[in-house]
Nucleic acid binder design. Structure first.
Length: 558
DNA sequence: GCCGTTTTCGGCCCGACTGTTTTCAGTCG
């Protein structure tokens, strides 16, 4: 069991206890322990072997014993018992916006509803509105959000799928008689939501791969197993497909199985496979088609094929171009670690700079900073900076109020190296008000970056309504940088907006919004998203060196 | 259930908004 799987069980326990109206501090303790284990940068199994599970902050005696049982037996009696009181389908309801533990408990107890399908039906038949606190609007909101969810049903975020795919591929490469292998399909193209894991292997002994797949520790079920093709489910119910091909046709198949259908149909156009026999790489395949190599993230038939013919494809940025992270949190607000720890991890990543951007005062739940604590934080940074080989920018993630005003005065903001302005409240304003609100923030000369512009959370909620073109025009006029939030639940701004913004000359920045040290490594998702938006290093300010970045920041403020 | 330079009990982030009410509980970030 991985840290993430253990954390998932603990989170379910927290949710069930919440629905059962147990002690809220106990609920929080389970959540906190789950979060800490999820983000801990050592394997929980290794910690277990050395009896160090309780070294993880937030994990005490009770949780330690439960984790030990989980790792020893693969299940947990306490968890099983709780699931008899509150089935898993009830927890799905808790994830719908607008539904909290109280309402879900009412729905479950009074109507015995245990799945989203049943809930949808009950809402459509107006059977919910008799319950305490549920009226017409809540019913309508439930119908809307379940139907929205259906649009992405069965899909998971790239952040969930990519690590699972990498783990499976590593297993196959290390145990099986394969000459080469790659993740293919939509994961390789970096799509934010994917439906399954596709892996391509070059092998002359496909039957041996078939015999080894059942021994993979993360396997749940194999549904198809024939030479050339394996299909099944991983333990978290993630679908996977392994395609095995003759090594002489590996690169042909790599291109064929990576591109979107529209891309591959257009480039291959019924050409015979023999034409691509013995190719030495993907570039060779494209060359034989009279094309320049096209990066996986571009293979969507959105104009890349014409440019591959004539030259003029963008020179996409790479993860190695990133020189710093300009949106991070620390213990000063809702981050899990101190500034020194975050900076240490940034140094390990080879960064030149990092910005500390904790929340501002109105976000009190997150321990947002007031002016005095912001000043004290600045002093701490001064002390730390003296010994460090990287530059720490003193920043803030300042809240954008309902009317577009900011949570700090211009004087306070002027004293900082970097200001990110973000929306954390009033998501339901209409399109005109929401757009005006953001434009007012964009126009503020002290605002360098707009954080997670749309507010979307993949698989959970759509972004608020915005006139995106007006936002981009304003960002271009005021030289305000738009963030590509790299967190795989956000990837906000999305690829279309990024590509549009680039066309208007708007600069962007890829930030992780890290709340833990390990979150700094989420950068790669943001880079994939930026590449899907056709961005080049010149478009993304944190590919620039410190001098160029500072020069840009000071030029746009004057 | 966790935690402790206020230490083995008694604390543990809170304030605004929403939809349902008719004075507020539940949800959100």
């Amino acid at each position: 069991m991985t840290n993430q799987e253990v954390a998932r069980i603990l989170r379910q326990i927290a949710e069930i206890l919440q629905i059962k109206d147990d002690n809220p501090f106990k609920v929080r303790a389970y959540r906190k322990a789950a979060d800490a284990i999820y983000h801990f940068d050592e394997d929980i199994n290794v910690l277990n072997q050395t009896g160090r599970i309780a070294d993880i902050p937030g994990v005490g005696r009770a949780v330690q014993e439960k984790v030990e049982e989980l790792l020893r037996t693969g299940s947990l009696a306490y968890h099983e018992r709780l699931l008899q009181d509150v089935p898993l389908g009830v927890l799905d309801m808790l994830h719908l916006p607008g539904l909290g533990p109280r309402t879900v408990r009412n729905i479950y107890e009074h109507l015995r509803i245990t799945s989203l399908d049943e809930l949808l039906q009950a809402a459509q038949e107006h059977r919910l509105r008799g319950l305490a606190g549920v009226g017409e609007n809540t019913e309508a909101a439930i119908i809307k959000s379940i139907e929205e969810q259906k649009l992405s049903r069965g899909k998971v975020t790239l952040g969930e799928a990519l690590p699972l795919a990498e783990h499976l591929l590593r297993y196959l490469l290390s145990t099986s008689p394969v000459l080469d292998g790659s993740i293919v399909g939509s994961i390789r193209r970096g799509k934010p939501l994917v439906s399954d894991i596709d892996i391509l292997l070059a092998t002359r002994q496909p039957e041996k791969v078939v015999s080894l797949i059942n021994e993979y520790p993360g396997i749940k079920q194999v549904t198809t197993a024939e030479p050339g093709h394996i299909q099944g489910l991983l333990s978290g119910n993630m679908e996977f497909e392994i395609i095995m091909v003759d090594p002489d046709y590996y690169y042909f198949n790599l291109v064929r199985t990576t591109g979107s259908k529209a891309h591959r149909d257009t480039i291959f156009n019924h050409q015979h496979a023999e034409l691509f026999f013995g190719a030495r790489g993907e570039a060779d395949i494209y060359q034989r088609l009279g094309l320049i190599y096209v990066a996986p993230e571009l293979r969507e038939n959105r104009g890349e094929i014409e440019l591959a013919r004539t030259g003029g494809l963008p020179h996409l940025l790479n993860l190695t171009d990133i020189r710093g992270d300009l949106h991070t949190h620390s213990k000063w607000s809702d981050g899990a670690e101190g500034i020194a720890e975050m900076a240490g991890s940034a140094i390990a990543l080879g960064y030149e700079y990092i910005a500390v951007t904790d929340h501002s005062k109105s976000l009190s739940i997150s321990g947002g900073l007031n002016e005095e604590r912001l000043r004290l934080q600045g002093k701490e940074i001064d002390v730390l900076q003296a010994d460090l080989p990287l530059t720490i920018l003193k920043g803030i993630e300042v809240d954008i109020m309902k009317d577009g005003a900011l949570d700090f005065s211009d004087d306070v903001l002027a004293g900082l190296d970097l200001v990110i302005a973000s929306v954390h409240s009033n998501f339901k304003l209409d399109k005109v008000q929401q757009t005006e609100r953001l434009i007012r923030a964009i126009q503020n000369p002290h605002v360098d970056i707009i954080g997670h512009l749309s507010g979307r959370l993949l698989n959970r909620r759509y972004g608020y309504e915005l006139d995106i073109l007006r936002i981009i025009e304003a960002a271009a006029e005021y030289k305000t940088i738009l963030e590509i939030n790299a967190h795989p639940d956000r990837l906000d701004i999305d690829e279309e907006t990024a590509r549009l913004a680039k066309g208007y000359g708007v600069k962007m920045v890829i930030n992780t919004d890290a709340h833990h040290r390990v979150d700094l490594s989420l950068m790669r998702y943001g880079v994939m998203n930026a590449r899907r938006g056709w961005l080049e290093p010149a478009d993304v300010v944190n590919t620039w060196n410190k001098d160029r970045l500072f020069e840009y920041l000071s030029s746009r403020r004057s």
